[in-house]
Design a binder for these strands. Sequence first.
DNA 1: CGATTCTTTGAAAACAGTCAATCTGTGTGG
DNA 2: CCACACAGATTGACTGTTTTCAAAGAATCG
Lengths: 194, 194
Amino acid sequence: MFEPLFDYIEQKSGLSITPHEKNLIKTKFEFRRLRRRQYLLQEGDVCKQMGFVLKGAARMYSVDNKGHEYTLRLGIEGWWLGDYESYTLQEPTKFFVEVLEDTDLLTATKESIQYLASTIPAMAEMIRTVDKRTVIATQQRIHAAISLTAEERFDALAKTHPDFLQRFPQSMIASYLGITAETLSRIRKKMVCR
Amino acid sequence: MFEPLFDYIEQKSGLSITPHEKNLIKTKFEFRRLRRRQYLLQEGDVCKQMGFVLKGAARMYSVDNKGHEYTLRLGIEGWWLGDYESYTLQEPTKFFVEVLEDTDLLTATKESIQYLASTIPAMAEMIRTVDKRTVIATQQRIHAAISLTAEERFDALAKTHPDFLQRFPQSMIASYLGITAETLSRIRKKMVCR
DNA sequence: CGATTCTTTGAAAACAGTCAATCTGTGTGG
DNA sequence: CCACACAGATTGACTGTTTTCAAAGAATCG
C-alpha cells in the first residue's frame, strides 16, 4: 500500500530509502479512504495534514460571494492534496478540497512530515525538489494566465496534462483555466471544426 | 555592502551567521552595478546566476510574436532577480530581466549558492523558507488571476505592494496584472471618482 | 426509469483590447 | 531659459471576446 509513496520519494529525491526508513514512514502516514463528494478540507479549516493520492481524483477550489467556484488545483494518483498555504502557515484556508471519486490517501501532519524530513535524507530532498518544481509550475501557470488567450490556455493544458481532460468534468477544467463552462464548451466546438 | 544580504539571510532563516560564514558568502557573491535599461538576462540565455537587489528596480517579462510584453515579476531592494525556472533547470529562458533604474546587485552562480547552502545552515534554511513563500505567493497570484476582476486585482496589488505603484510605470503594473495600459488607466479613472 | 448533473446553445450585456490621437511631464541640447 | 523630443498616460471610437442568464439537450447514477 505504501509502495507508490516510497517510489515517489525515491524518484523525486534521487535517493533510496532503507527498510528501516520505510517502517518509519509507515508509522507517520495514515491511510484514509474518502468517498466521492467528501471533503478533505473545508473553508475555515486549518490544513493539519497533506495527503498523497494513491487512487482517485480531487480538486481544490474557492467559492466567492456570488457562488462562483475557482479551481486552483486538480490532483490524481501521485499528487498531493491540501492547501499548501494553510498547511505551511497553519492558518485557516480559503479553499475546499473535495474528492471527486472514491479516493485512497496517505495523510500526515506537518509535525510528522517535518520529523521525517529531519530523519530521512530522501524525504528532505524530495520536499526541496517538489517545492522547486511547484514554484516553476505555478510561475508557468501565471505566465499562461496573463499572456495566453483562453483557447491557448486550454491547448497548453491538453498538452501538459491530457489525463486531466479525461478525469475531470469540463466545468472544472474551465474553472481551472479561469473561464466559464459555457466559454470552454464554445472553444471546444470551434476547435473540432478545424 | 553585504549587510543587506546578511540581514536578509538571518531574517528569512531565523538563524544567525558567523563572521566566518559571512566571509565565505563574500567570496561567492559578486557585486555588480547595472545602468538603467541594461539587461541582467535576455531571452535564450541560460540564467547562470541569481541577483540580490541592494538598490534599484527591475522587471522580468516575456515578449510574444506580436510584440506584447507580459511582466511576470517586479523587484526592488531585497528581492531576487533572475528566472527561477531557467536557473533551477539550467535551460534557456523565455524572459528578459531588465533594470529600470541604476541598480546594485549581489550575484552568485548556482554552484556557489549550492556550495553555500551545503556549508551554511542559515543559507540552506533561507532558501527553503523563500521557496515556500514563493509557492504561497504564486498560488495567491494564480487565485487572483482566475477569481478576481481586473479592478480587484489592482486593488489587491495596491494593498500588498503599495511601493510598486510608486516605483514602476503604470504600463508595467498593467502588464503585471494581465491587462493593457489603457484598461488600467480607465480603471484608475473610475476609482478616483468614487 | 426518473432524477440529477453536466454540457450545449442562443441572445444580450458587460468587459477588455486595439488603434490612433492627444495630453502631460521630464530632461536635453541649443 | 526655451524649444524640442521623448516616454508615459489618457481618451475616444470601434472591435472582439467573455460573461450572464435562460433553456434545452445529453449523459450518468441509483
